[in-house]
Simulated scan of single mutants.
Amino acid sequence: MLYEIGDPRAYLLPDVICDWSGVTLEQIGPDRVRVMGGKGLGRTGSYKVSATYADGWRAVTTLTLAAIDAPAKAERVAEAILTRCRRIFRNKNLGDFRQVSVEVLGAEAAYGANARARTREVVLKIGVAHEERSALNIFAGEIAPMAISTAQGLTGFYAGRPKVQPVVRLFSFLQDKADTPVAVEVDGKDVPVTVATREVRLDPPATPPADSRDAGPDAVKVRLVELAWGRSGDKGDIANIGIMARKPDYLPYIRSALTEDAVKTYFAHLCNGPVERFDLPGSHALNFLLHESLGGGGIASVRIDPQGKGFAQMLLDIEIPVPAKLAENDGLAMTKESAA
């Protein structure tokens, strides 16, 4: 229910608008859950359209590095490859890369400033996009030579020269039904079709004020995974993170800590747009939308996680203050800082 949605009070489906904010979930037996409280708010006067268009070219390559200071050396190798390519571009009057993504996998690159890994073995991933296919052919041709003439310990060039691929970008929008002629052909003949265009959409209902509760002076910190489940996905270049409290009593503390600003800060290395938060009081849950967070999203992106599949798992590692008595009574594992 929290997977890849927007505003849970007004989720647009092809034929109806749904309000899931008040949905309740009840375990009524083995492998049986009663789901109640969903509402339909009527149909829209528009269609949901997902269109694609060609938008340049991309290429992605990976190299393995086993060495002392492996993450730093991997970053330096990427810099050397990109610098050499840009020098060649200038000599050939080609523009710069339109998009560059360097991620050192194994060093928790996806976590940004929240990374904790210390490792001597990493995979360097370089993803680039350009307006001209010829520019990326140059990039592809420079990987193997650089792989044998830069940092010691660089290996694992198994995939060979990276393949240059077209970028197919997604554009989603609403199209007015009244402006969209519909024809159905049956046995070679057109059959008139009348589509109801009268919009009966209601405004999204107001969500009752949710409880945000300070943990108090005796607060300790626990990881969010101790308090909630999470699931994440994508809507184009927007990442969605659904967080559902394991117990209703946990939600006020989660809500107090997971403000829009806090989530924006946690994902500052990935999120270039605003963060929105929506309440689902019926299921003791929150839904976050992180705009401009996926490098274009889908196959338009050159990131290692272009669909935000790991975002919820990353957020579940954030620390949440809760009352010490609650942590003790429920056996919640405190962070090392709190335990100390």
Score class of each variant (00 low, 15 high):
106 G>V: 07
87 R>W: 12
166 P>Y: 07
240 N>S: 15
46 S>Q: 10
323 P>E: 08
80 A>W: 11
79 E>Y: 14
85 C>R: 01
201 R>T: 13
60 V>C: 11
31 D>C: 11
101 S>R: 13
127 G>I: 08
94 L>I: 14
229 W>L: 00
32 R>V: 14
4 E>V: 14
43 R>P: 01
43 R>N: 04
225 V>Q: 13
212 S>D: 15
231 R>D: 01
209 P>T: 14
292 E>T: 13
321 P>L: 07
119 T>E: 09
96 D>N: 05
125 K>I: 04
183 A>R: 14
61 T>M: 04
23 V>T: 05
138 I>Q: 04
300 A>R: 03
202 L>S: 02
130 H>T: 02
285 A>K: 11
43 R>F: 03
97 F>T: 09
310 G>H: 04
304 I>L: 03
237 D>A: 01
47 Y>K: 09
58 R>D: 12
308 G>E: 06
119 T>K: 06
246 R>I: 03
183 A>W: 12
265 T>P: 08
91 N>Q: 11
203 D>R: 12
227 L>K: 06
295 G>L: 02
277 R>N: 15
150 T>H: 00
201 R>S: 08
271 C>T: 15
191 V>Q: 15
20 W>A: 07
58 R>F: 10
320 I>F: 02
185 E>Y: 02
84 R>Q: 10
219 A>G: 08
200 V>H: 13
248 P>I: 01
325 K>W: 13
222 V>E: 04
103 E>I: 09
269 H>L: 12
153 G>Q: 04
123 V>Q: 06
255 R>T: 06
38 G>M: 01
273 G>F: 13
91 N>I: 00
246 R>C: 04
144 A>Y: 15
281 P>H: 10
316 L>A: 00
80 A>H: 03
93 N>Q: 14
239 A>I: 14
124 L>I: 07
39 K>H: 04
98 R>I: 01
331 G>S: 03
80 A>L: 06
